[in-house]
């Protein structure tokens, strides 16, 4: 055990606004866990409580069974990227990592190593004020990796990265997880998660909406198979008789659930109905996510419209 993050019954209220509301989930080592939710869902608040930057109203967040604030030299255990912009612009990348290393007795050699790892070695002596957002994100990732921690938390790390940078960070996160580290990646972008995470924790309005694998979520919102035929009404009857769920699409096609492509082809052949197309539709995680979070927002809408940043 160990090397994991446990969020237990976490509630955080700010002057009447509930940012996080009874949130419980666990982040396991060895895989990338996506922490997903619309803006204002409570992701950043949860991470701030994890890092001891905000005090929970009730509940707690534990890393390796301990509160972050009880960990001596925490950068050796937990690395976090919160707000990449939050660096004094007058410091160079090297200056910034040097004081951070010194604060937790991290070997000075790590500074050059992580700058190399994130591709900033060439601008180590450049002031951060002149960095693009993408370069600041890389510096923030370097800071998270500085203490070689087993637990890594990244809040919206792809913001401002170019496509190359995005591909790089996906590979980095997956390789960190493959080394057995615990990786929590927050984002409001489902497409980001589909490419990177295996496990998903989805929150909406401060509450847990889903705690599941990407595969399970894909299955849960199976969009079925698209069938095109010149005799849709007749074929719909045949499919229903065979136990399928059929919905007529606006463009004349049929959306079929409960039968696979082979069975649909066999039925068409047996009834001599021509088929123009049978296509397994790409499951859109985006849709699944939107449906999940929209439900949570609607549900909450009756009682409380307040949203926290």
């Amino acid at each position: 055990m160990g090397r994991m993050i446990e969020v237990r019954e976490l509630t955080k209220r700010y002057r009447g606004t509930t940012a996080v509301d009874g949130l419980t989930f666990t982040v396991e080592p060895g895989r990338v866990t996506g922490f997903l939710g619309p803006n204002g869902a409570g992701k950043t608040t949860t991470i701030r409580v994890l890092l001891g930057l905000a005090r929970p109203t009730s509940g707690r967040v534990l890393v390796d069974g301990r509160r972050y604030t009880e960990i001596r030299r925490p950068l050796h255990r937990v690395g976090a990227l919160l707000d990449a912009d939050a660096v004094s612009p007058g410091l160079t990348a090297h200056d910034h990592l040097r004081w951070l290393a010194r604060s937790n007795a991290i070997a000075a050699g790590r500074v050059a190593a992580v700058l190399e790892q994130v591709g900033l070695a060439g601008v180590a002596r450049t002031r951060v004020g002149g960095f693009s957002l993408g370069m600041k994100q890389r510096l923030g990732i370097a800071a998270a990796l500085l203490g070689d921690p087993r637990v890594l938390v990244f809040d919206e790390p792809v913001n401002g990265l170019d496509p190359d940078g995005i591909r790089w960070i996906r590979g980095l996160l997956r390789s960190l997880a493959a080394e057995g580290r615990t990786v929590l990646l927050s984002s409001h972008l489902m497409s980001e998660m589909a490419m990177t995470a295996e496990h998903l924790v989805i929150v909406g309005d401060g509450r847990l909406v889903a705690d599941t694998t990407v595969r399970e979520l894909t299955g849960r919102f199976d969009p079925g198979i698209l069938v095109r035929t010149p005799r849709p009404d007749e074929f719909a009857g045949v499919l229903r008789a065979a136990g399928a769920e059929v919905a007529a699409e606006a463009d004349g096609g049929l959306g079929v659930k409960g039968l696979d492509v082979d069975a649909i082809g066999d039925l068409a052949h047996r009834h001599s109905i021509p088929l123009y197309e049978t296509a397994r539709r790409e499951t859109s995680l985006e849709d699944a996510y939107l449906r999940l979070t929209a439900a949570s927002v609607r549900f909450r809408g009756h009682t409380d419209n307040a949203k926290a940043a």
Binding site: R48, L53, P74, D83, D85, V87, S88, P89, L100, A143
Partner: peptide, 18 residues
């Protein structure tokens, strides 16, 4: 105050939670 202005105080406090 410069750390509060830039937000770097968060990094400082994550590094030194006490």
């Amino acid at each position: 105050a410069a750390e509060y202005a830039t937000g770097m105080i968060g990094t400082s406090m994550a590094a030194t939670p006490r």
